[in-house]
Design a protein around this nucleic acid. Structure first.
Lengths: 198, 198
DNA sequence: TTAATATTATACAGCGCTGTACAAAATGAT
DNA sequence: ATCATTTTGTACAGCGCTGTATAATATTAA
């Protein structure tokens, strides 16, 4: 009934996520992204609506696949703190090995979007609000299970988020092998959120 | 012997620091900055050489006046941890009150410069390296004075830096009154770097 | 007054980007 | 085969930005 798309939309979104992750939201023009995909700007606007709508879509995917909800794999049998610690270990290793120094997509976008993009600022904030809600939830579970002393759950969650955003940026500057994980490990222990794993 | 400048260079640098701090390095074009000062681009290039040289100059001033060396006022009579804590309290309060959500100039510039600006990347890194050196120094003093248990000074310094960079970005997202300081206080206590003040 | 010097003004030629508007092409249902 | 629909191609008109080059201007020492 209609002319079919000549490109794979899902694959395109993945490509553009990498582009924006690496070069940043502002540096990625509609022009350059269209070129990257080998399509025209017409097709871009037709498929994604706008750069903003595309980014919102990408952030949604990022929050499902990367960090975000169900970031830590919490199970009945496994220690919450170990789950947190292992995931952060993986993140540290990943960032140390990332030659492009991309850090966390959401954290890196704060500077470019807050107070600079009316449409995307609330989208990005919502991402972090949900993240914190999730952190609060699992920290609550850790307390219930007796893995963690009773404490202000929100402040603990925010402190963890704070540390993780810090890591994202630190990973771009301090590139000594193993150092990022040392910082993370020390900070987790300090926050009483460290658990041995494996 | 020569035609005098028709503008105050020192004042101009201060104005441009505010511009870049608020809008970011990339968003500030030579055009817009020249307009802001009411001078032509010729005069801009003549006075500052390039955007990059200007930024390096600004960062130098920032490191002397804002954070950076001698950030914490360490004296013989005063507790090192109290000095750290008080300074961070001031930073938190300042960021909470900052309507423009500017955060830390250096931290905010990481995303825009690392892997994106060959000339400024090393300048920005040097800023953080010096910062860490300074942190190591004062943490060493704290240990000497018995204010802090013996520990890996570098990791402690990096963890502090990590937390501070986190705060810079968190301050743009989480704007509840007093929350930033709560995070900071909790994290400082966790790192054993908290000291009462006043 | 003149010459030397530095600042400021004007202009150039080119680049990439924006969003839209309209035409062309490709498909499937009727 | 035609029609409706959607995607894709081409073009428009305008904007801001870049760095340099050359000319005009203002100052002061000689």
């Amino acid at each position: 009934m209609n002319r079919p798309k000549e490109f794979d939309r899902e694959g395109a979104v993945a490509v553009l996520m990498d582009e924006i992750w690496e070069h940043g939201f502002e540096a990625c023009s509609v022009n350059s992204m269209s070129d990257k995909l080998g399509i025209t700007r017409s097709s871009f606007y037709n498929a994604f609506g706008s750069k903003e709508k595309l980014f919102a879509e990408i952030l949604e995917i990022y929050s499902q696949s990367g960090p975000g909800n169900e970031m830590f794999e919490i199970t009945q049998s496994r220690s919450v703190l170990s789950s947190i610690t292992e995931k952060l270990y993986e993140i540290c290793k990943g960032q140390e090995e990332d030659k492009a120094c991309r850090g966390c997509l959401a954290a890196s976008s704060i500077q470019e979007l807050v107070k600079k993009n009316e449409e995307l600022e609330p989208v990005l904030k919502e991402f972090f609000y949900q993240n914190i809600q999730y952190f609060e939830k699992i920290i609550g579970i850790a307390i219930q299970r007796g893995e963690l002393e009773d404490c202000d759950v929100r402040i603990k969650a925010l402190s963890l988020q704070n540390m993780m955003i810090g890591l994202s940026e630190m990973s771009k500057i301090f590139r000594n092998k193993g150092e990022l994980w040392s910082i993370c490990k020390h900070s987790l222990k300090a926050l009483a959120l460290y658990g041995e794993f494996e």
